[in-house]
Nucleic acid binder design. Structure first.
Lengths: 362, 362
DNA sequence: ATGAAAGCGCTAACAA
DNA sequence: TTGTTAGCGCTTTCAT
């Protein structure tokens, strides 16, 4: 920077001002400085800058694992938002482990991030409590921890599961299986709860034998395959399946196919959550679409508003609704969609499917 | 830090030493300092640290888009490697745009990253030339730019495509369609080249009408659907399809299904690249498996070796081989696999498929 | 084994 | 509009 000042014939300070777009620099001086900066290939030292200024143009994002599509989508959205505002994104991984979450957050604090977006592990949050005392803006995503009192952006898992299940019930199904995960976090809990509530509200007694919880993650296709096989081998009768996650569908389809059950004639299937391939499956999947990218966008919005001091005070909780996308897999015809809110009207089965709803017998 | 020094009854300097594990601190002093650090919840200031020390424990990763599975996988692998070594990952996005790549790299340099892993855009690299003069370690991934003289870790796209195509030819196919993308970067180029080379080597004349390049990205299922439809509507006869990316399969399958073509009886299909769902598709997909996570791991390895000064001098080029995984979609039976190297022996069609290779007619 | 002092590259008061 | 002067919180000589 001294070189730049010398070459531009002004003081360090003036260079700093020119670079930071401060108002009190003459247009020609600024132009000259910028020209020299360009010519010398000068690169400002972000660390020194944040040290001196007491704030950094960085944001931390802590998620479980970049490979999981939901998180990848959020990374993409947050990254984009940071880019647009000239912020740099620091990434932390938890692998769904509290200790690692703690470490990741600590490291990001060391880097003096201006704010933090966090998908909390939810098996413990004590280590996050001290953070509240700080001025550091934090936005939770995907899973909320109410006790922390931070902004939150997530998806209405319960209503989504409820709507999907209700849809099946509306089509006449009474024995509906649940292919899911042990409800450790709120995501699995809420989806299971929504599923059960729909049954209950329609006078269908809960049937533990129809619920299989052998899936280990939202993308555990192999687990879903195995779980479905167990369900089929149990001998329980069922005319429909609700999938904890849409991404499990290929595993479930395969199990059904191998057992000679057709979708949707023998077993109707609905899923919940993002799955870009849903319309391309052998039987297009009826599922509750989740606007995951919007979660990232909204979270970044909230965060930057806090960072820029435009918002302060009580936490905002943004819960985005899913949307039921009806396709062939539930036997109610494809292409039609309706909001998945609790009060959504059920759709009458539509006419002839644009995509043939056939299946391969195993 | 001053607080810590005061509470521990020593100088700033001693605290610094204790924290950095320097040898010249008595065990008891160190213990006392660490205890105080813990009690006070002191968090060292990474920016000040790198400013003073002249080096930072951060690494930059620049990819096109976190949402694309390949990049998500690399992010995950690199993140993990950074974590293990106590480094923090800064993320940059290019969206396959040179100007954005330039910006991302500049920003990461401002943050004084100790090294850089970069999936270069490949439509221009002039902006990266100045980087060579710096001492900054850089490792390219996925796509190489030889002129830059940096370490590189990627996958042998050409041999993979060659092996997959050769496999089809070995099964008797002569009219093989190519569903792919306009070869802008080396990935598409190499795959297409490998495909063509296999044809040529077996005396099959290149047939432009069988190559459709309407796919826009490795995951453009919709584009693949449309491209396959065009291919089908063109009236060209073909008994097999090579997919530029395995992830396109659901789109291709759907087009074939709707056209009443069975896989593999009417059209055999092989793909290239990672696709976790390959074994779960209605017809399990024969494809060339790519060890993408290893690319990230190896790249991080190389980078840290450079950072720690364990390696210097001429660039290392690591090109990982793919592996042909034979399933039902090519009609040669599932479950068998062989290395996809150029000289790989072709497999004789295996016995009865464990997964039924049937399809749904549209 | 510990302390004192200088300075990393920058920004932010304050003067001029 | 510009220059001068202090630090930001830490590491690193150099002394002790």
């Amino acid at each position: 920077m001294a070189d730049v000042a010398r070459a531009a014939g002004c003081s360090l300070n003036t260079v700093s001002r020119a670079l930071n777009g401060k108002p009190d620099v003459s247009a020609e001086t600024r132009a000259r400085v910028l020209e020299v900066v360009e010519r010398l290939g000068y690169i400002p030292h972000a660390n020194a800058r944040s040290l001196a200024a007491g704030r950094s143009r960085t944001v931390g994002l802590v998620i479980a694992d970049a490979v999981v599509p939901v998180y990848a989508t959020i990374i993409g959205a947050v990254q984009e938002a940071c880019d647009r505002r000239g912020y740099t994104l620091l990434l932390g991984n938890t692998q769904e482990d509290v200790a690692r979450e703690d470490r990741a957050v600590r490291v990001l604090r060391e880097h003096m991030v201006a704010g933090l977006i966090l998908a909390p592990v939810q098996t413990g949050y004590e280590h996050l409590l001290p953070l509240r005392a700080l001025e550091l803006p934090v936005v939770l995503v995907v899973r909320d921890v109410a006790a922390l009192g931070w902004d939150y952006v997530g998806i209405d898992n319960a209503s989504g599961a409820y709507a999907a299940t209700k849809h099946l019930i509306g089509l006449g199904h009474r024995r509906i299986g649940y292919v899911g995960a042990v409800p450790r976090g709120s995501t699995a809990q809420d989806r299971q709860a929504g599923f059960r509530r729909a049954l209950k509200e329609h006078g269908i007694a809960p049937q533990a034998a129809l619920e299989t919880l052998g899936v280990r993650s939202i993308a555990d296709v192999a687990g879903a395959y195995a779980a479905t096989n167990r369900l089929l081998e149990s001998g329980e009768r069922m005319s429909a399946l609700f999938l904890y996650s849409s991404q499990l569908a290929p595993g479930v389809y395969r199990a059904l196919r191998e057992a000679g059950r057709r979708v949707p004639e023998d077993v109707a299937v609905v899923g919940q959550g993002e799955f870009p391939l849903a319309p391309y499956l052998e039987v297009p999947l009826t599922h509750v679409h989740h606007p995951v990218r919007d979660v990232g966008i909204r979270a970044a919005d909230l965060l930057f508003r806090r960072i820029q001091g435009e918002r302060r005070g009580s936490p905002e909780k943004v819960i985005l609704p899913g949307e039921l996308v009806v396709a062939a897999s539930c036997g109610a015809g494809p292409g039609v969609s309706a909001p998945a809110g609790g009060g959504a009207e059920l759709l009458a089965p539509a006419g002839a499917p644009a995509l043939e709803a056939t299946s391969a017998a195993g």
